[in-house]
Structures are given as C-alpha cells and as structure tokens.
C-alpha cells in the first residue's frame, strides 16, 4: 500500500469542501479523481501532501502518517504538480533540478545532477535544457514540471489536471508518460482530470467526487453511465471503439 486516506475532511471557514474521504492505492496504480468543478479534486490532492492541512482524518504514505512527517520528508515521497504553473524566468534544467531540493543540503551533488538528467531524458526534454521556462509552449512546460516531480524520486505522484491546457496530441503524450512512469517505476499516481475519455482509457482506478464526498470508487466497473450521469448531471454512453473505452455525452 502506497497511499491510504482515512476519514479525511477539509473545511474552509465558509463551507465544507471534503468530507469522509476514504481510499487507498497500491504500487503501479493510476487513480483518476473525477468530478465537476468545485467538487474538491484539487483540495483533495493538496490535503494528501499537506500543502493544505486537513481538518480531520489522516493520510498515510507507506504506512507513515503525513502529519507526523516533516515537509522535507513528505517531499521525498510525494511529487506534486500544481494546476497552474508560474511563468518564471528559469532554465528547464534549473526547474527540474529544483526537484532535488528535498535532498540537497548545501549544493547539488553529482547524483542530483544525474537524476535531473535522467528526468529530462524520460520526458524527452534534453534539447530544451537551457531554454527558459517562460519561452516554452504549454505542453513543454507541463512536461518540465512533471520531470521536476519525477526528479524528487517520489513513491507517489499527485497531478492536478495535468492535461487541462494541452492540445490533443500533448494530452495523450503527457498521460502516456505518466502511465509509463507509474508502471515502470512501480509508484502510485493520483491524477485529477476533467477528460473522462483520457481517464477511462489510461487510469486503472477511479474516484468520483460529488459535493466533497466520494460518490463511487473502484476499478473500471464504477465508470458506468449511471454513475457518470449522477456526478456530472448529463447522460452519457460508454462505448468501445477499437478496444478503447470512450465516454460520449448523449
């Protein structure tokens, strides 16, 4: 078990965002967190790595409670990609090297540079290494921040809508990369997504959130037209085209 979330709740002073969240994932799991805007997807991700402090409940990463770990220790185990990226004047290499931050004491070691190089290679960013982040396209920037998260050598990846600003080609590419990394390195991924077709095609576990609560959770079997309709308030059909499952609104 890589991640286990028990009775997690998060409340803003004005309203409650998450209640009674329970789920767990194992090595190699790609969990898609689905739900309408404001359902609590981003908040859930931030509560897992304590960017936000949950109001109740506990999160366990490899059986250690995150509340009892230091920020640095959490950063060694959980890589996080925020929904919005700052447009900064920083080279791609520097941005990815930043992923080694939790490990660096005074200066980046040879090992840190090697891991940075590997992460760049994994996302095919080598030729961009000295380009500035704010000169890259949205898809390239997204790859850079994923590479940074991978340079953390995490056991769990949290990705907040990693495909939301990308074109069709980049969407597929980024999700394929995530899938490949999760499978090859046997880590877990919790990915909030809006695109049901990408989710149903690449994820192997699903968490449907509705009004801050889990509406349904499980494998492909929970992605029924009825569940999707209840969560998104639109009727859909789930079909297969050439063996690829697709969700079509009707």
């Amino acid at each position: 078990m890589i991640l286990s979330v028990n009775e997690l709740a998060f409340t803003y002073p004005s309203h409650s965002v998450l209640q009674e969240i329970n789920f767990s994932i194992c090595k190699g799991n790609f969990l898609a967190v689905l739900g309408v805007n404001g359902a609590g997807k981003s908040t859930l991700l931030k509560c897992i790595n304590r960017v936000l402090k949950p109001c109740a409940g506990a999160v366990f990463i490899q059986n250690d409670e995150t509340g009892k770990l230091s920020r640095r220790e959490i950063a060694k185990r959980i890589g996080y990609v925020a929904q919005r990226q700052e447009s900064v004047c920083m080279t791609v290499y520097d941005a990815v090297l930043l992923g080694r931050k939790p490990y660096i004491q005074w200066e980046a070691s040879k090992n840190d540079l090697e891991i940075t190089h590997k992460a760049l290679k994994m996302l095919e960013l080598e030729e961009y290494s000295l380009r500035y982040l704010n000169e890259l396209s949205g898809g390239e920037q997204q790859k850079v921040v994923i590479a940074r998260a991978l340079a953390q050598e995490p056991n769990l990846l949290l990705l907040d809508e990693p495909t939301s600003n990308l074109d069709l080609k980049n969407q597929l590419e980024v999700v394929k990369i995530i899938k490949r990394v999760v499978r090859n390195q046997q880590i877990g991924a919790v990915v909030s997504m809006h695109d049901l077709n990408l989710a149903i095609r690449f994820a192997d576990k699903f968490l449907l959130l509705k009004n801050g609560k889990i509406f349904a959770a499980g494998g492909l079997e929970v992605m029924t037209p009825e569940n999707i309709e209840s969560v998104y308030s639109i009727s859909v059909k789930v079909k297969e085209i050439d063996g690829i499952p697709v969700v079509v609104p009707v």
Partner: peptide, 23 residues
Amino acid sequence: MFKRWDYNALDSGEETAKSLGVN
C-alpha cells in the same frame, strides 16, 4: 546562502515550494 534553494523553490509558486519541502 543557506536558504538559497528555498528562495529558488519559492519562485516557482507557493504551492510548488511547499510540495518541495519548503516551510
């Protein structure tokens, strides 16, 4: 100088900095 990596992380946004272990 001891905090220079923290400052670099902060440039990438507060949430990212937190997720990189910066208090």
